[in-house]
Each structure stands twice: as C-alpha cells, then as structure tokens.
C-alpha cells in the first residue's frame, strides 16, 4: 500500500516534523476540550487521528488552522511558531483544511470554488481587478487552468459550471478537497472526509488521499471509518477526552489494550 519512493523521501528529510503541537489546551466554558496535547507530524506522512465524538479532534484542527487560539501551548509549522498568526497567514504558509460539515461556497459554481481556493497563490488586488491589465488576465487564465486540472484530479471536471450546492454529497466532499489543494498546501487537514460516503466512494477517497500524499503533501486525517484510517495512515494518534491516549503505527494501535476498551471496543459493539 505504501509507496516505497515516499518512504525514501521521508528518510531523506530525516523525519523533520513539519507540524509540531506542544502542550495545546483549550476549554469552552467549563468543558476542557483539549488538555496538554503534544505530537509531531513528519514531512510527507499520513497521520490518522481517531477518538470518540467529543475527543477534541475538530477543536485541534481549529487550533492548527487558527479559527481560535489555544488557551495554552504552542504550535509550530516548519519550526516556526504559528499559534498567534491569523488563519489566512497560516494558509499562505501552507496549511489547508476541509470541514466536517462541508463548508463549500454555495453561492458559487464548482469551478469558482476551486478558483477561490487559489486565493493565497494569486496576487491580483483591488486596483489590478479594476485595471484588468494583461498580467491580471494571464493570472486569471492560469488560475482557471489550475482549477480545471484539480477538478480533473478529483474527477469533477464535467461538473465545473454547476452550482456547488447541486452536487451530490460525495462529490461535494471531493470538491472541498480540491479547493483545499488549490492553495498548494504542505499540510492538509482532512476532517472526516469519508462521512456520508458509501463504500465505493470511500475506497476511491483512500486512493485520492494516497495520491495527494504522493505529491509530497503531508496529511492529517480525522476519520471514523476505521478500515480507511488504518489502511492509509503511517501513524495513528488516539485522542480521548481531550488527551492523547496512544500513538503508534496502525498495527500497534490495533493491539493497544487501552485503545481497544476506550474506543475500538465501543466502536465494534456499535457495528
């Protein structure tokens, strides 16, 4: 399953962490959503993050992408401290994300959603837009080409001019991934990308995730679908009640007793 070439590259980088979370904590009112969470993500890996609902996975994504600041702790991207930077700067640095409950721009068509995803990689400003110089036109054309290429990659190029809200749910998920990729991220945070997808779609999603990693993009994957997470992840972190319960390779996690009782056991019983 794992691409040997990628593993080599991983070795070349010496496994330098591209993302490092040090003691992150966050509380909402009386609820401690995250408590002293620390971990690292090495360049080029797929990190799976699992845990029951309310374990703090989405909160962690929001801290990394900057929707709100942590109460305590530090976040490093490429050894640069980022926890005080606004979201848009983090995207510019190379952190992109998708949302658990889809956040497409329903007032735009499919193509425009991916074009706007390139916001941080394009430059045209207020005056440029009004003057519409040749440089601006060229950038616009390139932006459109890029967007079409990304749509092609996720298989939605035929839907380019449809309103995004008209796409079936599974395709909307793919569109959101294409939009996130449009910002040319170095780290991609995927928040439950398989939820609401059928088995066939989930399988294709797994291939897409591996293909994205093969382009050198590091992925953090929050996912409830165990078989998907176990099959694509290089390492897995288990969160429970805002703390890191365990971390290791998929094999280690599957045999970890605390994890089995806290999470997998419960999960299996539901099935």
């Amino acid at each position: 399953m794992k691409d040997p070439e990628m593993l080599d590259r991983d070795g070349e980088d010496g496994g330098a962490p591209i993302l490092r979370i040090c003691g992150a904590s966050k509380a909402f009112g009386g609820v401690q959503a995250l408590e002293n969470v620390s971990f690292e993500v090495s360049q080029g890996m797929i990190l799976g993050m699992i845990g029951p609902n309310g374990a703090g996975k989405t909160t962690l994504f929001n801290l990394i992408s900057g929707l709100y600041p942590p109460d305590a702790g530090r976040i490093f991207f490429n050894e640069e401290e980022i926890q005080r930077l606004p979201t848009h700067q983090r995207v510019r640095m190379g952190i992109a994300r998708t949302f658990q409950n889809l956040a497409l721009f329903e007032n735009m068509n499919v193509l425009e959603n991916v074009m706007v995803g390139q916001h941080v990689r394009t430059r045209c400003g207020f005056w440029g837009a009004i003057a519409r110089t040749t440089g601006v036109r060229r950038e616009e054309a390139a932006c459109r080409e890029n967007a079409l290429a990304l749509l092609d990659m996720v298989g939605l190029v035929d839907q380019a001019l449809k309103p995004s809200a008209d796409l079936p749910f599974g395709w909307q998920r793919l569109l959101e991934i294409a939009r996130a990729l449009a910002s040319r991220p170095r780290v991609l945070l995927l928040d439950e990308p398989a939820s609401g997808l059928n088995a066939l779609e989930t399988g294709r999603l797994g291939d897409l995730i591996l293909a994205i990693r093969n382009q050198g993009i590091t992925i953090v994957l929050v996912e409830h679908d165990m078989s998907l997470t176990m099959s694509v992840s290089d390492r897995i972190i288990v969160l429970d009640q805002g703390r890191v319960l365990a971390s290791g390779t998929p094999e280690e996690i599957q045999t970890h007793s605390a994890v089995r009782t806290a999470y997998l056991g419960e999960h299996c019983e539901q099935r």
């Binding site: 992109a96 721009f105 007032n107």
Partner: peptide, 20 residues
C-alpha cells in the same frame, strides 16, 4: 476577479473564507 471571488466567499461562509 480574484477580489470578487474573495468577497463572495465571505458571503458564502466567513469561516470557510478564512480557512482558504
């Protein structure tokens, strides 16, 4: 333009606009 798309993205969802 790029500016117009950014403006419309804010209308669509301000959080998503920040996130891109």
């Amino acid at each position: 333009s790029r500016v117009g798309r950014a403006l419309r993205s804010i209308h669509g969802s301000e959080h998503a606009a920040m996130a891109i």
